[in-house]
């Protein structure tokens, strides 16, 4: 299936230092891309529903009353930075830096991921206080179908970080663990891509057309 043996993934790969892990990783990484893309289609459906529901506010609170752009801005910066730190963890692994370095970047990513979730949950609570609950209107149902779905993905990513961190400690840098780190990095970058869609369509789109 693949031609070039050692550099098929120019960046998200394990490179020539980990030839056997790399070969294994190539196949499963492609499989993981397939998973990510089907996940993307699922998100796409939720986006489509949201777009058609922007007007369906049924007299309930709309985007202007509910959205707090300052908090969204903070969440955006946090998630973007965590995308960088997970990439740096990947590089630490690829270039055989001390294992502590990988754990350090994992830790920073985890803290950023958790802070993102805290801010997001605070937003939801503030929205609920203003009457913005899922059953209030079609618009809010669509909102709560989409944004917390992304939050759930971030929470799953955080759990994955913890589990992988423990596995890294216990099992060491085996081929399997290394290829899992590659997939986690991929997953995390993917979450940031979805978030760009959310700020553009859900928040700014909602404020422009809602």
């Amino acid at each position: 299936m693949r031609r070039a043996p050692s550099h098929s993934y120019p960046g998200l790969n394990l490179g020539e230092d980990h030839a056997s892990a790399h070969k294994f990783t190539e196949v499963v990484t492609f499989g993981f891309w397939v998973f990510l893309m089907s996940d993307l289609v699922y998100f796409g459906l939720m986006f489509a529903i949201y777009i058609t529901m922007i007007d369906a506010q049924a007299g309930g609170p709309g985007p202007h009353e509910l959205f707090d752009l300052k908090s969204i801005f903070a969440q955006t910066l946090i998630l973007l930075t965590s995308s960088l730190t997970v990439g740096l963890a990947m590089l630490a692994l690829k270039y055989n830096l001390p294992r502590g370095r990988i754990v350090l970047w994992f830790g920073v990513t985890l803290i950023l991921g958790l802070s993102f979730l805290v801010l997001e949950i605070r937003d939801f609570m503030a929205m609920a206080e203003k009457g913005g609950i899922p059953q209030r209107s079609g618009f809010l149902s669509a909102f709560y179908g989409l944004v917390p779905l992304h939050g759930l993905h971030v929470a799953a990513g955080c759990l994955w970080l913890v589990v992988l961190g423990i596995q890294l400690r216990v099992m060491g840098l085996t081929d399997l663990i290394m290829s899992r780190v590659v997939r986690l990095a991929l997953f995390w970058h993917f979450l940031d891509l979805i978030w760009i869609g959310i700020i553009t369509i859900v928040y700014f789109g909602g404020l422009s057309y809602g």
């Binding site: 299936m1 693949r2 031609r3 070039a4 098929s8 120019p10 492609f30 995308s83 991929l186 891509l193």
Partner: peptide, 19 residues
């Protein structure tokens, strides 16, 4: 989106990441 795909996810038009 394109910036992140290229710089974070390393998707480009090189033959090796075509699939």
């Amino acid at each position: 989106l394109v910036v992140q795909l290229v710089y974070f996810l390393h998707i480009d038009r090189r033959r090796s990441s075509r699939e």
